[in-house]
Amino acid sequence: MAARAESNGSAFDTAKLVVAIALLIAGVVGFYYFSNEALFYRVLGVVGLSIAATAIAVTTNIGKTFLGFLKEARVEVRKVVWPTRQETMQTTLVVVALVFLVGIILWLLDMVLFWGISLLTGQGK
């Protein structure tokens, strides 16, 4: 009996998700169908249908799980120790300097290999 109730809830959730997707599609189609109307009203219609679709999707098990995930992610972002402006600038300068240094090393390596290949093949000056 419990499995039957669970499958009905799942089927109902699937129906809700289908309705939510249909609302989103209707919003996009309506946006282009009413192309002769003012842009403000068309955007308002798309936003309204998107909010309605989101409200319907959030009531499903998948939507509730996704909302829980977003709340947990927000908590984790608050735990992050963000670098100061000075630390960011110092790190950026170190990265730029190392990229420049590696570029010079690769350029020199390329010159040496080109010189060696030219000597071996006899195509040098």
Score class of each variant (00 low, 15 high):
residue 43 V to T: 12
residue 68 G to L: 14
residue 41 Y to F: 14
residue 79 K to E: 14
residue 87 E to I: 02
residue 37 E to Q: 15
residue 111 M to P: 00
residue 102 V to W: 02
residue 8 N to W: 08
residue 86 Q to K: 09
residue 116 G to V: 10
residue 66 F to Q: 07
residue 92 T to H: 13
residue 26 A to Q: 08
residue 26 A to N: 08
residue 56 I to K: 04
residue 72 E to L: 09
residue 43 V to F: 13
residue 34 F to P: 01
residue 103 G to C: 14
residue 79 K to W: 10
residue 45 G to P: 02
residue 54 T to I: 15
residue 93 L to A: 02
residue 89 M to S: 05
residue 5 A to T: 09
residue 16 K to M: 15
residue 22 A to K: 10
residue 32 Y to C: 09
residue 14 T to Y: 05
residue 52 A to I: 13
residue 114 F to L: 06
residue 56 I to Q: 04
residue 35 S to C: 07
residue 12 F to S: 14
residue 2 A to D: 02
residue 56 I to S: 01
residue 17 L to N: 05
residue 122 G to Q: 12
residue 20 A to G: 11
residue 117 I to M: 09
residue 120 L to N: 01
residue 93 L to S: 01
residue 112 V to T: 14
residue 14 T to F: 06
residue 75 V to S: 03
residue 28 V to F: 05
residue 92 T to F: 15
residue 100 F to P: 00
residue 60 T to Q: 11
residue 45 G to Y: 05
residue 82 W to K: 03
residue 74 R to H: 07
residue 51 I to S: 03
residue 97 A to R: 03
residue 106 L to C: 07
residue 6 E to W: 10
residue 104 I to N: 04
residue 42 R to A: 05
residue 50 S to T: 04
residue 50 S to N: 02
residue 67 L to P: 04
residue 51 I to F: 08
residue 78 R to P: 01
residue 35 S to V: 10
residue 33 Y to M: 14
residue 93 L to P: 00
residue 101 L to W: 07
residue 115 W to V: 07
residue 61 N to A: 15
residue 25 I to D: 12
residue 59 T to G: 06
residue 26 A to M: 08
residue 112 V to E: 14
residue 115 W to Y: 10
residue 3 A to M: 12
residue 80 V to I: 04
residue 31 F to T: 01
residue 16 K to T: 13
residue 48 G to A: 09
residue 96 V to D: 07
residue 55 A to P: 07
residue 61 N to L: 12
residue 123 Q to K: 15
residue 23 L to P: 04
residue 73 A to Y: 00
residue 7 S to V: 11
residue 35 S to D: 10
